Simulated assay, not measured.
Amino acid sequence: MSNKIPIAGDQILRVGPVNPAVAHVLDDEFNARVLPLAEQRQKFLNEVGDQIRIAVCSGKIGVDSELMQALPNLEAIINFGVGYDATDVAQAQERGIPMSNTPDVLTDCVADTALGLYLNTLRRLSDAERFVRAGSWAAGENFKLTTRASGRKVGILGLGRIGQAIASRLLGFGCEIHYHSRAPKNSSGFAYHASAVELAEATDVLIVAAAGGPETAGLVDAEVLKAVGPDGFIINIARGSVIDEPALIKALQRGVIAGAGLDVFAHEPHIPAGLLELDNVVLLPHLGSGTVETRADMASLTLANLRSYLADRTLVTPI
């Protein structure tokens, strides 16, 4: 199918739940199709799969290998979110299907979340609040001492937009910033380490800000966790897949590391019982970009990418 032929609304497919504002426009303005639930999906794809030219999805539920294969005339994938590891990127590249995401607009809120997790994990603020609510303070008990958050050596695994925003916030706390990325970023002025293990060994806190996907799956493994050390902490606001979750649970249970702050998990929204049972880990429901303002900006950029592709086959923020 030539991409010069105008694209009709029913040639746009919404994949899974997306932001309500995006869903509203897809429904009301375009009358886009919606991918059915599993039991009706194959019949739907058999009937109209070859008609779909644009897929609109979220970072959590992308266009996976099987779905992409069922859409032979797919021309573009519009992704709500900065992460796109739920989509079969390799197949999209092989077929020449361009993709867009929503970078920059969520950087500050995700970095703010990382800083909140950093403070909460080291100073055990959530634990302290529960201590007060339980009446323990009023009963004369003293809350246990925690770990100083300022002036620490912090390693950032993945010094992209979000990683750099986290670093700039931590500088305000007098922290010394180290990092590991696929390549050194000499202009950053921070100390570069050649591997995740070396980074963990050199720092007190390891903050995971690397992109998800096959290349980084299990990057933080048992060896890295051992290098974090019994007085060290790990914070993850990237993707749950970047950390070997069973290894992390063992490390927390056995005191291999002091604690963790997690906003993301391997099989969201399901969190292993091993994590839920521990009191040296702070757990958040993947709320990194979850503010009214940022989600509105993300929705606006998602729709701008869609309208741009419909108008002239270009994307505002191509990946």
Rank of each mutant, 00 (worst) to 15 (best):
Y179P: 00
L199V: 01
A191S: 11
V224E: 04
I234H: 04
A183I: 09
P184A: 15
R239G: 00
A222E: 07
R182A: 15
D221K: 00
A227L: 00
A211M: 10
S188F: 06
F190Y: 13
S187P: 03
L199Q: 05
P214N: 09
Y179H: 01
I235H: 15
S195L: 07
V228W: 13
A196T: 00
D221Y: 06
V220P: 07
T203Y: 02
F233A: 10
E215K: 14
A194Q: 08
Y179M: 08
L225A: 00
G218A: 06
Y179I: 11
P214Q: 08
I207E: 00
A194V: 14
D231M: 11
I207C: 08
G240Y: 03
S187M: 03
D204W: 10
P184Q: 13
L219Q: 14
E176M: 01
A183E: 15
A217M: 14
L225R: 08
E201G: 10
A183V: 13
L199E: 09
H178R: 09
G232E: 07
A200P: 03
G232I: 00
R239W: 00
V242M: 07
G189R: 03
A222P: 02
E198A: 12
G189M: 12
L206T: 04
P230L: 03
I235D: 13
V228M: 11
T203G: 05
L206H: 11
R239E: 06
I177T: 02
G240C: 04
A210W: 02
L225N: 05
T216S: 10
K185V: 03
I235R: 07
V197P: 01
T203N: 03
V205Y: 15
P184T: 11
A194D: 11
N186T: 12
G212D: 14
P184Y: 07
V197T: 15
D231L: 14
V220F: 12
I234W: 01
S188P: 01
G232K: 04
E198V: 06
H180L: 06
E215L: 11
E176A: 02
A238K: 10
T203M: 07
Y192G: 10
R182C: 09
S187N: 09
S188W: 09
N236H: 03
G189A: 08
L199G: 03
T216F: 02
S241Q: 08
F190E: 08
A202E: 13
A191G: 10
L219I: 11
I234N: 10
G212S: 08
G213V: 00
E223V: 12
N236R: 14
F233G: 01
A210E: 12
C175E: 11
A217H: 15
I243F: 02
C175Y: 01
A202V: 10
S188K: 10
V208H: 05
H193T: 00
V242S: 09
I234R: 05
S181R: 12
I207F: 09
I237R: 05
V220R: 15
G240N: 11
G189F: 05
A227V: 00
F233Q: 06
